[in-house]
Amino acid sequence: MPDSLLVLAIMAVITFASRLLPFVLFSRTRPPRWVATVETVLPPLVLWLLVFYSLNSVAWRTTPYGIPALGGVAMTVLAHRWKHNALLSIFSGTAIYMILTRLLG
């Protein structure tokens, strides 16, 4: 477990640093305009990349051809567009993934 505690400590520091950064950098000056650009475009890019990265282990060329993963992602997107309830979206997407895995696997 020491490895995971080290990982946890690193992640805790990164998270706190991200929250502290603006208070250190812009306590006296106003943020420049490019900061606003980065703010709008980076989060969706990074989050979609994480979605695709987490699907890395899906075997697309063999049965069930990634259908459970695609179904789970589609369900999550639809549920979230519909209700905007994070928990409902995560549960329904994961449920569809589990059901499809059992039906097709």
Partner: peptide
């Protein structure tokens, strides 16, 4: 899969 689903939720929100 709930991990993927969480990232999808965050990605949809920011999009």
């Amino acid at each position: 899969f709930s991990l993927t689903a969480l990232f999808v939720v965050l990605a949809v929100g920011s999009t």
